[in-house]
């Protein structure tokens, strides 16, 4: 009976395949077997070209033109002047010596943010995945709890934490009830960066935990049984079996987290507004402020800064490819 039902369900697909068979055979006869892969790739390439390559080219054109006009034909050609402004620095390590000092402040803030956020997020995600992989009580509930923040909009996440961390928020009320003083978290650069990183980890950790959990569950149990029979300690098992077997998943998590972290904007923008001063202003906020929030909307400079961001992201992607596809990756 079940078999009949399956056949019935597959019937429309079978009919569709049969209907397509003849036209595709004709097509293959026309363009040859070698042309067929390109035929199937065309829709995807068109989509990719329209929404990725074309904007990249348009962005390049903006970065090489000046003025405040929106349409390219109205913008004067200025060559690499915007890039020149971005890199006009007495000392690259000191933003105060740079013409576009806030660009470099944003670059350094982003580097600090990415290093700490990715480092802690990967460590915490791994720890959480290891715990959730054990046979603990209410495991399903805890898995859902850790994943839930991923479903929330970044703006909602930031607003929730803003209320928690406000002068009269829940956390300060708790501090006061314990006899402490209120802390104005958002006027201290250290605290503001700490909370920006914390909230970002809280919001995204569940996703990476899920990837690592899937990796942990794919490790063959007989490896652990053999280790147990050999009397291997838990720590040695973690270092010699779990982590090497999990390495391909860890690479994915690290690189995806880094790319996402470099692109962070909305939750930090809503939470701290980039302040105090420019202490939490990240590179994407600099681009947004330059291109859209000023009275003089400097699309050219914003586009040039976007290209610098793109170079950083391409570098991260290359690192990912190098790590993920190195010859010994499968055996790690």
């Amino acid at each position: 009976m079940r078999q009949r039902l399956r056949e019935l369900a597959a019937l429309p697909w079978l009919l569709a395949m049969r209907a397509l068979d003849r036209p595709f055979r004709l097509l293959q006869r026309g363009i040859g077997q070698g042309g067929m892969p390109y035929f199937f790739l065309v829709p995807n390439l068109l989509f990719f070209g329209t929404f990725v390559i074309l904007p990249l080219l348009v962005n390049a054109a903006y970065s090489l033109t000046g003025g405040t006009e929106l349409f390219l034909e109205d913008r004067p050609w200025i060559g690499a002047e915007h890039f020149g402004h971005l890199f006009a620095c007495g000392d690259l390590l000191d933003p105060a010596t740079c013409r576009e000092d806030n660009f470099w402040r944003a670059i350094y803030n982003s580097m600090k943010f990415v290093t700490l956020q990715v480092g802690f997020m990967v460590a915490l995600s791994l720890l959480t995945a290891l715990v959730l992989n054990r046979k603990i009580r209410a495991r399903g509930f805890f898995r859902a709890v850790f994943f839930f923040p991923v479903l929330l909009s970044p703006v909602v996440v930031a607003l929730i934490w803003k209320w928690v961390l406000h002068r009269d928020g829940v956390l300060n009320a708790l501090l006061e009830s314990l006899g402490g003083d209120k802390i104005l978290f958002f006027i201290d650069p250290g605290w503001a960066m700490f909370w920006a990183i914390f909230v970002s980890i809280w919001a995204h950790m569940g996703f990476y935990t899920l990837i690592l959990l899937a990796g942990l569950q794919a490790i063959p149990p007989d490896l652990y049984e053999a280790a147990e029979m050999d009397g291997t300690s838990k720590t040695r098992t973690l270092w010699r079996i779990t982590l090497p077997m999990l390495w391909p998943n860890l690479v994915v998590v690290i690189v995806l987290a880094m790319i996402k972290s470099v692109q962070t904007f909305d939750e930090v923008f809503v939470l701290t507004g980039g302040g105090p001063g420019t202490a939490t202003q990240l590179i994407v906020q600099y681009i947004y402020d330059t291109g859209f929030a000023s009275q003089v909307q400097n699309f050219g400079l914003a586009a040039a800064a976007s290209y610098v961001l793109a170079v950083i992201l391409i570098a991260l992607t290359v690192i990912y490819i190098a790590l993920a596809f190195r010859p010994d990756a499968k055996h790690a």
């Binding site: 104005l184 001063g277 906020q285 929030a293």
Partner: peptide, 15 residues
């Protein structure tokens, strides 16, 4: 004046 108002955001954001 409290830094919560002027100091807590960046750029030209209104608060």
């Amino acid at each position: 004046m409290s830094k919560e108002l002027w100091g807590s955001v960046s750029g030209s954001s209104y608060r």
